[in-house]
Design a protein around this nucleic acid. Structure first.
Length: 546
RNA sequence: GUUCCGGUAGCUCAGCUGGAUAGAGCAAUGCCCUUCUAAGGCAUCGGUCGGGGGUUCGAAUCCCUCCCGGAACGCCA
C-alpha cells in the first residue's frame, strides 16, 4: 500500500495544478490534536505569499478542486488555513490483509528505484580490536544499509581496510618488538607502537609456530605486517558478526597499490591539470572545488598523503558504477570532508556523488569518569566487552534510537547492567507477548485467517490505533531511507510497541466471539510481523518469549 | 582565531521542508495481576525549549549575536 501521505500529496498537487496552475512542495503532517483530523497540510498558507491571496481562500479553492478519493472520509479547513483530512476506515482496513499476504515484504518500497548505493562504514584500522567508539558507526551503517535495501535501493556495504601505510608499519614493528622480547632480545617498542595484549599473544603464537626464524630476518617485517592485519581483521569480523554487522566488500588499501590504481589516479589528475608542484610536493587544486585550500597529495619526500590513496579508492568505487556513495564517519573527520568531496567532484564530474554522514563521538563514562579510548594504551573498552556484558540487542537499540548528531555520553555502569528497564525490552516484550497470545489461541483451535475480515469487531480505539501505526510503516521506511535517519524507525518501533501494550491491557483477544477472535488474531499477527521486521532492520532480535 | 555538532522536564533523548495546547523513557507519587506474560497498563508531578534581538499570520525549528559543552583545523592516518 502507498503511504497515505503520498496519496494526499498527489490529490493536493493536482488540485493546485488545476486551480492555480502551480507546482509546490507539499508537506503533510499529523496534527497533535485528533479533532484536527488524521493528517493535515499547510500548503494553503505556504502559498499565500506567492499567490497574494488569503490562505483560507486558497484552502477553500484547493478543497473545491480535490478529486474524490475512497480513502478520504472528509476534509475541512481550520485555523489560519490548515486543510485537515479525515481518513476513511477503508484505508486502514487494507493494511492487515496486505501485511498477512506480503509478510516481511510489507513496507518494502520503490523509493530507491534500484539506485545503486555504496555505503562505507566502520572501516576500523586493523591494528587492534574494535572498541566502543566504533560501535556507533557500525550500528548506524548496518541499520541504514538494511533500511535502504528495504526501501528499494541496491545497497553494497563496504569496509575500507587500511592495510597500508604508517600505522600498519607501526603494527608490524610492535609485533616484532614483542617477538624479540620473547626471545630475550631488546624489545623496545616503536614510538607510536600498539600495546594491546593481542600483540603479545600473536608474537607468542608466531614464536611457538616458527621459533626464532624471524629474528634478524630481512623478510620479517612483511611477515609481521601480514599476520598482524590478518589477525585483527579476523577479530574485527568476528566481533562485528556477533554485533549483527556484516559487509559485502572488504576493500584493501594495499590492493590499490598492487593494482597500480594510486599511480594511475595521480596520472589522471595530473593529465587534467588539477595538480601543481610547489616546495617539492604535489598539490591538488581542491580550493577550486569548494575546499579552503589546496592539499598535498605527494609529499616532498615522494610518499603519498592519506588523501591520495583515498582518492584512488573512491575513483575505484565510482568506476564500479555506483549512483551514490555514502560514507559514515566520526565527526573527528569533518575537516577532511571538503577535500574528499572536492577530489570526487574532480574525478566524477558530479558535485553530490559523495554523501558524508558524520556521527558525533560517543564519550564513555565509568564510575563518573570519562574513559579515554586509546589503542596505544591497549586499555580501551572493546565492543566485545559491551556485547558480553550488556548484550547485542541493548547496544544496537541504544545507538539506533539516537540521531547521529546527538552527542552521547554512554554510562558503562548503566549499560552493562542488564536492567529490566532497558528500552529494548519494551519492544521485544511486545513481540513476545503477541507470540504467546497467538500460540494460546492456536491451541484452542483458532488460526490466522485474513479471508473474511469484516472489521466489525475492530472498532475499539486501541485497535484503531494499531491499524494506524501499521499503515504508517511504509512511510516510515521511506522517510528513514531518504533522510538516512535510522532513529526515525526506532521511534516508530517504540510507538507501535506502546500501542500494542495499551491494546493488550485493554482489549481481551481470546475470550470473545469466534469472529472477534479471528479478526483480533489477524491484527496481532500483522503487528507481530511489522514489529519483528522493524526490529530486524535495527539489528535487534525479536524473541518469541521473555 | 576559523569550521562542524550540540544545549528541550532532575537524568537520557524525540520533536516530521516553520504549524494548532512542546512529547517519550528513566527517576518520584498513587492506582491496576481469581482474567491472553505486571519486562505491562492507567493517572499525577515535572518546561522561561541556553540568553538576547530579528524575520511573519505563526518560531524549539529560519537569520544575527552572545554564553556553555564536544570535535576538528598537518607535506599524520
Amino acid at each position: 500500500m502507498q503511504p497515505i501521505e503520498n496519496i494526499l500529496k498527489n490529490l493536493l498537487s493536482q488540485a493546485l495544478q488545476t486551480a492555480y496552475d502551480i507546482d509546490a512542495d507539499i508537506h503533510i503532517e499529523t496534527p497533535k490534536d485528533a479533532s484536527h483530523g488524521d493528517l493535515s497540510s499547510n500548503v494553503a498558507m505556504t502559498q499565500a505569499r506567492t499567490l497574494k491571496t488569503n490562505p483560507r481562500t486558497i484552502a477553500q479553492t484547493i478543497v473545491a478542486h480535490l478529486d474524490e478519493s475512497p480513502y478520504v472520509e472528509s476534509v475541512n479547513i481550520a485555523g489560519p488555513g490548515f486543510i485537515n483530512f479525515f481518513i476513511a476506515d477503508t484505508f486502514y482496513h487494507q493494511v492487515v490483509p496486505e501485511i498477512l499476504e506480503k509478510q516481511d515484504a510489507f513496507g518494502s518500497g520503490e523509493t530507491g528505484q534500484g539506485q545503486s548505493v555504496n555505503i562505507e562504514y566502520c572501516s576500523v584500522n586493523p591494528t587492534g580490536s574494535i572498541h566502543v567508539g566504533h560501535a556507533r558507526g557500525a550500528a548506524a551503517g548496518d541499520s541504514l544499509a538494511r533500511i535502504m535495501d528495504k526501501a528499494g535501493y541496491n545497497v553494497t556495504r563496504e569496509y575500507y581496510v587500511n592495510d597500508a601505510g604508517n600505522q600498519i608499519d607501526n603494527l608490524a614493528k610492535s609485533i616484532e618488538a614483542r617477538y624479540k622480547e620473547l626471545h630475550g632480545h631488546d624489545g623496545t617498542m616503536p614510538k607510536d607502537g600498539y600495546f594491546g595484549k593481542e600483540i603479545t599473544e600473536l608474537a607468542q603464537t608466531i614464536k611457538s609456530k616458527f621459533g626464532d626464524a624471524y629474528l634478524g630476518n630481512d623478510a620479517a617485517i612483511d611477515f609481521f605486517r601480514r599476520h598482524g592485519v590478518d589477525l585483527f581483521l579476523e577479530i574485527i569480523k568476528q566481533d562485528l558478526a556477533d554485533y549483527g554487522v556484516t559487509f559485502d566488500v572488504f576493500f584493501s588499501e594495499q590492493s590499490l597499490y598492487d593494482d597500480n590504481e594510486v599511480q594511475s589516479t595521480l596520472t589522471y589528475l595530473k593529465d587534467r591539470n588539477l595538480t601543481y608542484e610547489a616546495d617539492g610536493a604535489i598539490f591538488l587544486k581542491t580550493s577550486e572545488y569548494g575546499d579552503e585550500k589546496d592539499r598535498v597529495i605527494v609529499k616532498s619526500d615522494g610518499t603519498y598523503t592519506y588523501l591520495m590513496p583515498d582518492i584512488a579508492y573512491h575513483k575505484n568505487k565510482i568506476d564500479r558504477g555506483f549512483d551514490t556513495l555514502i560514507n559514515i564517519l566520526g565527526s573527528d573527520h569533518h575537516g577532511y570532508v571538503n577535500r574528499l568531496q572536492a577530489a570526487i567532484e574532480m574525478i566524477s564530474g558530479h558535485t553530490n556523488k559523495l554523501e558524508v554522514n558524520l556521527l558525533q563521538i560517543v564519550r564513555v563514562f565509568q564510575e563518573g569518569e570519562e574513559v579515554k579510548m586509546s589503542k596505544r594504551s591497549g586499555r580501551a573498552i572493546t565492543l566485545r566487552d559491551l556485547i558480553d556484558d550488556a548484550g547485542r540487542d541493548a547496544i544496537r537499540y541504544f545507538f539506533a534510537r539516537h540521531s547521529l548528531n546527538t552527542h552521547m555520553d554512554l554510562d558503562l555502569d548503566l549499560a552493562i547492567r542488564k536492567s529490566t528497564d532497558n528500552p529494548v525490552f519494551y519492544a521485544q516484550y511486545a513481540h513476545a507477548r503477541i507470540i504467546t497470545l497467538i500460540n494460546k489461541a492456536k491451541s484452542q483451535g483458532y488460526d490466522i485467517d485474513p479471508s473474511h475480515m469484516t472489521y466489525e469487531t475492530l472498532k475499539s480505539s486501541d485497535a484503531r490505533a494499531l491499524l494506524k501505526w501499521l499503515s504508517r510503516y511504509p512511510g516510515v521506511i521511506e522517510e528513514a531511507a531518504q533522510k538516512r535517519e535510522v532513529h526515525k524507525l526506532a521511534n516508530f518501533v517504540h510507538s507501535l510497541s506502546s500501542s500494542l501494550h495499551s491494546f493488550y491491557s485493554n482489549v481481551p483477544v481470546i475470550k470473545a466471539s469466534d469472529q472477534r477472535i479471528v479478526e483480533h488474531l489477524n491484527l496481532m499477527e500483522a503487528v507481530r510481523i511489522v514489529l519483528s521486521q522493524s526490529l530486524n532492520l535495527l539489528g535487534v532480535s525479536a524473541p518469541t518469549s521473555m
